[in-house]
């Protein structure tokens, strides 16, 4: 099976280039991460990429596979068009090969204050929720911050420092929807303005690529609805 992998080592290379690899034997059920590890172990140990859990939970191995972002560890190689084009996540600076600098992405995540804000004195034990209140967080809390969605979003490519991107906005929604959070008003006010939220034009690339099957576009539209209600 043929692979064409983006290579760039800023200490040595002047320009990025694509390198071809071929694996003769492909075990049934092999995932793309397995193939990359096989290339690294048997052909080229300088090939660099992030990985950790290997089962779609940690979100480390987000990459661009034949033009579409996804997690290598849960992408079966069977069925991929050959040569499989593997590139780093688009829109973020490349550190080396398939490793990108996620700082801007995390910066945007921090910007939405992704934690409970409670002004009342904290209760001794816990902040209880009804099952219905808890259900509102489904589809929001599962995000693993792999950055597949934000780096597939053209609005994030053009204005990564001003538009928060689908991942951060999904988390904004997660805390706006949380019955225990008391900063809803401030959170909605903070997202006003032409850039932070409203660069989303609902093209739904984020929904298409999310490896966890989440729907950031719906979360963003829910925030917009809440903003309209607040304004009226």
């Amino acid at each position: 099976m043929k692979f064409s992998v983006y290579r760039y080592n800023p200490e040595v290379d002047k320009k990025p280039y694509m390198q071809e690899y071929e694996l003769r034997e492909i075990q049934p059920g092999l995932m793309l991460l397995g193939a990359l590890l096989q290339i690294k172990d048997t052909i080229d140990e300088t090939l660099s990429f992030r990985r950790s859990c290997g089962e779609g939970v940690c979100g480390s191995d987000g990459m661009n596979i034949n033009g579409i972002n996804g997690l290598a560890c849960i992408t079966p190689v069977a069925g991929l068009k050959q040569p499989v084009q593997i590139r780093p996540l688009p829109g973020l600076p490349v550190v080396r090969d398939l490793i990108v600098d996620m700082e801007q992405f995390y910066q945007n995540y921090r910007d939405v204050k992704p934690y409970l804000i409670v002004d009342d004195p904290m209760p001794e034990v816990e902040l209880p929720q009804t099952p219905e209140q808890r259900d509102r967080l489904d589809g929001l809390y599962e995000c693993i911050l792999c950055a597949c969605c934000s780096t597939q979003c053209p609005s994030f490519w053009w204005n990564p420092d001003k538009y928060l991107g689908p991942a951060a906005l999904l988390q904004a929604s997660r805390f706006i929807e949380d019955s225990r959070d008391q900063a809803t008003e401030d959170r909605l006010a903070a997202l006003e303005g032409p850039f932070k939220l409203f660069r989303c034009h609902s093209i739904m690339n984020c929904v298409q690529v999310c490896p966890k099957g989440l729907n950031p576009t719906k979360a963003i539209n829910d925030i917009k609805k809440k903003m309209v209600k607040r304004a009226l």
Partner: peptide
């Protein structure tokens, strides 16, 4: 004036 009238209003 923040790119003429902010985010929510133009969107609405």
């Amino acid at each position: 004036s923040v790119y003429l009238l902010h985010g929510l209003r133009p969107w609405l």
